[in-house]
Design a protein around this nucleic acid. Structure first.
Lengths: 209, 209
DNA sequence: GTCTATAGACTGATAGAC
DNA sequence: GTCTATCAGTCTATAGAC
């Protein structure tokens, strides 16, 4: 149905960039198409001209946001040839690099799932693989067998890694209020964690350094 | 200005309970007063009769939500007589107990701060104490001096404790989608963490069991 | 205190000129 | 492609009857 997409970009691209910013900050319900148009420096009517509706524009933002978060990760997490220790370093680094550029991303995605899980499921295809089949989980399981901590589900460790990496970004506004840090103070805190988190995680798995 | 509050409760209380549920699920912008009224089983006009406006009702919900999350915690965290090890156990337990009853709480609060930090600051009084003065931070600092890990800011460890405890609840809808767990599966996962998190945290501080 | 009816403001979307 | 003007629908809040 779509005509050949005019790749002059410019206006179309500006709208999308503005939508990213506003949606991630305010969520779907809290964002007004007028604000997105203003942020993009264009007229409200153009938003509908290019993207038909607020809903359709939102869907694109959600998909690309998730794409950023998951696609690289999914590739990395399923590499057979990369060692578990190396993966822990890389996953931490990957998330931190991404989230430093998009600090609002975690809360945006998690918030939209919470506010309407059904809508979310419809908008994104849920990968159909079982958690236990993921290569990293298998690797962690083997590692834990060797070091005698078989009684713990390795999924706990993955959640720990993700929690310690992502949560500070989700809590960033609150942390900044409590600590009175500016953006630089927060960034320095995160850079320290880039080094520390892999050490903590490997210690949980009893991987010797 | 308020007349002597009629502590028949009933209607007034029903509205507040409904507001808690709806606001926590959908956030401020995503919630409609009509939905809250319907959830409470009362007429829309009554909502304004008791609470004047959506904004004022929301403020109450935010304050009580934060109260639940922080007041008990603040008391515990500043007790001089409780040992660090004991506090770690208690903080974990306190959060898990609370969040099992209100799993949407973390995302609700963090999301509202993100969507409008200024409004949030106005609505709640921000405690004026420095982070470094908190008793638990001091205790952690001392412990880390003894065990020779002075180069790490103890605030990292506190953030780890909070991250590992709270994040799974913030990510609950996503975890349930990925793992295909029902509520029982998720609860069991959390109960395992109630035991595990203190062990991991104490290991980071090199507290011997 | 509780209801119905409606005012008044806002929002997403489109028609139509250029 | 881009704009102005405007419609139709929705939402909060209130007036007024009971």
């Amino acid at each position: 149905m779509e005509k050949g997409v005019n790749k002059d970009a410019s206006t179309e691209e500006k709208i999308k960039a503005a939508a990213f910013k506003i949606f991630q900050q305010k969520g779907f319900a809290g964002s007004r198409t007028r604000d997105i148009a203003e942020e993009a420096g264009i007229n409200l009517a153009l938003l509908n001209y290019y993207y038909r509706s607020k809903e359709k524009l939102f869907k694109i933002v959600i998909e690309e946001s998730l794409g950023q978060l998951f696609i690289q990760l999914q590739r990395l997490i399923n590499e057979e040839s990369t060692s578990l220790s190396e993966k822990i370093d890389k996953i931490t680094g990957l998330y931190i690099d991404l989230l430093k550029k998009n600090p609002n991303l975690p809360l945006f995605i998690l918030g939209e799932i919470q506010s309407d899980p059904e809508k979310f499921k419809k908008q994104v295809g849920i990968p159909d693989i079982s958690i236990q089949e993921i290569v990293t989980i298998r690797q962690a399981k083997e590692q834990m067998k060797i070091t005698g901590i078989e009684n713990i589900d390795p999924f706990h460790i993955i959640i720990n890694l993700i929690s310690m990496t992502i949560f500070p970004f989700a809590a960033r506004p609150m942390i900044k209020i409590l600590t009175k840090w500016d953006d630089n103070g927060f960034d320095q805190f995160i850079e320290e964690r880039r080094q520390l988190i892999p050490v903590w995680i490997k210690s949980m798995l009893k991987i010797e350094k």
